[in-house]
């Protein structure tokens, strides 16, 4: 399986990779992108099974990336990993087609809980 991590912070991409490993998903291939526009390119190139995406990013943010994907008919499994997790953001994410929203700081248990059903169904 292939997981695309989209975050403008190199260190956060590293933390997400570490947490994936700790949550038992270390055998999956990981692809990275630094913003939503790059993320769209990586989706086209690599056809990931799951996208883990930050919300606030330069050039194209996470919700714009998700809307772009769904507008183009791409139904890749998509979840947000963000520093804010208000009820309003959660609703916007779900309405746009996201499966979950993980709020920073997160633990390996958080990843296991949210990702296990998604990756099991992939």
């Amino acid at each position: 399986m292939k997981i695309l991590i989209v975050d403008d912070s190199k260190v956060m991409r590293s933390i997400v990779k570490r947490t994936l490993r700790q949550a038992g998903f270390g055998s999956h291939e990981v692809v990275e992108a630094g913003n939503g526009a790059e993320g769209l390119e990586r989706v086209a190139e690599h056809t990931p099974d799951l996208v883990l995406c930050d919300w606030n990013m330069p050039e194209m943010n996470g919700i714009e990336m998700l809307q772009e994907l769904r507008g183009a008919g791409n139904e890749v499994k998509f979840g947000f990993v963000t520093s804010e997790g208000t009820a309003e953001m959660h609703q916007v994410a779900m309405d746009a087609g996201a499966l979950f929203l993980i709020t920073k700081p997160f633990t390996a248990d958080d990843f296991e809980e949210k990702l296990s059903p998604v990756l099991a169904a992939a």
Binding site: S9, V11, S83, K104, P105
Partner: peptide, 27 residues
């Protein structure tokens, strides 16, 4: 990048803890 991300993460926690004072807070 790392120090910026550290403050970004804790700011999300501060925002949620202070939402009862001001629900319109934006990061």
């Amino acid at each position: 990048d790392a120090i910026g991300e550290v403050v970004n993460i804790v700011a999300g926690g501060v925002k949620s803890r202070m939402a009862s004072y001001d629900a319109t807070l934006q990061l």
